[in-house]
């Protein structure tokens, strides 16, 4: 990854140009041709540095609701409980953390009723309490890492 790649990444992480010819705009902004800009982005995709190029939809903007949940599961049962949780398409992340509260998952649903219904279902299927931790306040969101 050279400096031009880093400049491109810094730009298209925050905003890929939503115009008919985006690579003309990217090229212009970093001082290269459309062809070179296109080739470089294609290589960054192929090498896996770019995971995805598209819209990051916002659950709140779409009027959906999202939450973070945690559960305390005996370690020997965690895999089974995790698979019950992962079954739901609205569960986007599900992972184990090194704590007594060891199962963590994010859940997105069209409305709050669906959230309660799903969490109750998970509780009854696993036999363990789900702690619902919806956001009360957001202090900062910064998803792009700038390259120096």
């Amino acid at each position: 990854m050279d400096n031009t790649d880093k400049q491109i990444l810094n730009m298209i992480q925050t905003g890929f140009p939503v115009v008919a010819e985006p690579y003309v705009a990217i090229g212009r902004s970093v001082g290269i041709s459309e062809e070179e800009a296109y080739q470089r982005v294609m290589e960054l995709m192929e090498s896996g540095i770019i995971r995805r190029l598209g819209a990051s939809f916002d659950s709140r903007g779409l009027g959906w609701t999202s939450t973070l949940c945690t559960m305390c599961i005996p370690p020997e049962k965690i895999e089974k409980c995790a698979s019950v949780v992962s079954e739901h398409p609205g569960v986007t992340h599900n992972y184990e953390r090194d704590h007594k509260f060891n199962l963590w998952f994010t859940y997105i649903a069209p409305d709050k009723d669906t959230v309660s219904k799903t969490l109750k279902e998970i509780e009854s299927k696993t036999g363990y309490k789900v702690y619902n931790l919806p956001m009360i306040k957001k202090f900062k969101i910064k998803v792009d890492f700038q390259f120096d």
Binding site: G15, L44, I49, I50, A55, S56, G61, I141
Partner: peptide, 22 residues
């Protein structure tokens, strides 16, 4: 697509990186 951004349906239109690789 621009209007969806203006209406805040999406937060960001762009590249998502594999952070580990970066």
């Amino acid at each position: 697509v621009q209007s969806y951004g203006n209406k805040k349906y999406y937060r960001r239109f762009g590249a998502t990186l594999r952070h580990q690789k970066a």
